[in-house]
Simulated scan of single mutants.
Amino acid sequence: MTEFQRLDTGRLWSVMGWDQLTEFWKRIDPAAGWYLLAVGVSPAPTLCDAAAITAFIARIDALLRAEHHESYCGIVYADDLESPRLIKIYDPNNLGSSCGSSKNPPGPGWIMSRVEPDAIPASRPAPENRKRWWHGLLGDS
């Protein structure tokens, strides 16, 4: 089992409140060596510099707040809420049934990891708007 697989299949903690998410992002060191992966969009994880991580956090936070129409967050998970090495972010437009009761629960839309991620198969193709969002974020077309 790889280090990533151990983190990916281990216990994850949910960031439940929007104020908790604000505080969670402040604890992320953008210069710590983060990989970003858009599941179903990017063919491989990208090791990003501090500027790219800062931009990603700002843009993903704005996307989640605009598109997750709930009074709580509950779609960001980490292996450790104080000093995370793995963060899974679920796409608010691909949550499936509530409470994970689906036989085929959706996978995360995005992964931030301090360990290089293994390939993550997409549970369904990413919508074109998510692909454009991701490519715009990374500055490629």
Rank of each mutant, 00 (worst) to 15 (best):
W34Q: 12
L47M: 08
L47G: 07
R11L: 12
G33M: 10
R6V: 07
E23S: 10
I53E: 03
A52Q: 07
K26E: 12
P30M: 03
L12R: 11
D8W: 13
L21A: 15
C48V: 15
L7Q: 04
D19K: 12
K26N: 07
A52L: 15
T54F: 05
Y35W: 15
L37A: 01
S14M: 14
G10W: 06
D8G: 02
M16T: 13
L12W: 05
W34L: 11
L47P: 02
G10H: 04
D49E: 14
R27N: 11
E23D: 13
A52M: 09
I53Y: 01
T22F: 00
Q20K: 10
R27G: 13
I28T: 08
F56Y: 13
S14F: 01
S42P: 01
G33K: 10
P30T: 03
G33D: 11
V41R: 01
P30Y: 07
D49Q: 10
R11E: 08
G17W: 09
D29F: 10
W13C: 14
V15W: 02
K26D: 14
A38C: 09
L21P: 12
A55W: 02
A51C: 00
E23N: 04
E23H: 04
A52V: 14
R6Q: 15
V15H: 05
W25S: 03
L7A: 03
I53H: 02
A51I: 06
G40M: 10
A52P: 00
F56Q: 05
G40E: 11
L36G: 09
D19F: 06
V15A: 10
S14D: 03
D8R: 07
S14G: 04
V15E: 04
A50R: 05
A44I: 08
A31S: 14
E23R: 11
V15L: 09
D49W: 02
V39Y: 08
T46K: 08
D29Y: 13
A31L: 02
S42Q: 02
G17C: 08
R27V: 12
A55R: 09
M16K: 14
D8N: 14
A55Y: 05
D8E: 10
L47D: 05
A38H: 06
R27Q: 14
L12T: 12
G33C: 10
V15P: 09
A31K: 08
P45K: 01
W25H: 08
P45T: 07
A38M: 01
Q20G: 10
F56A: 14
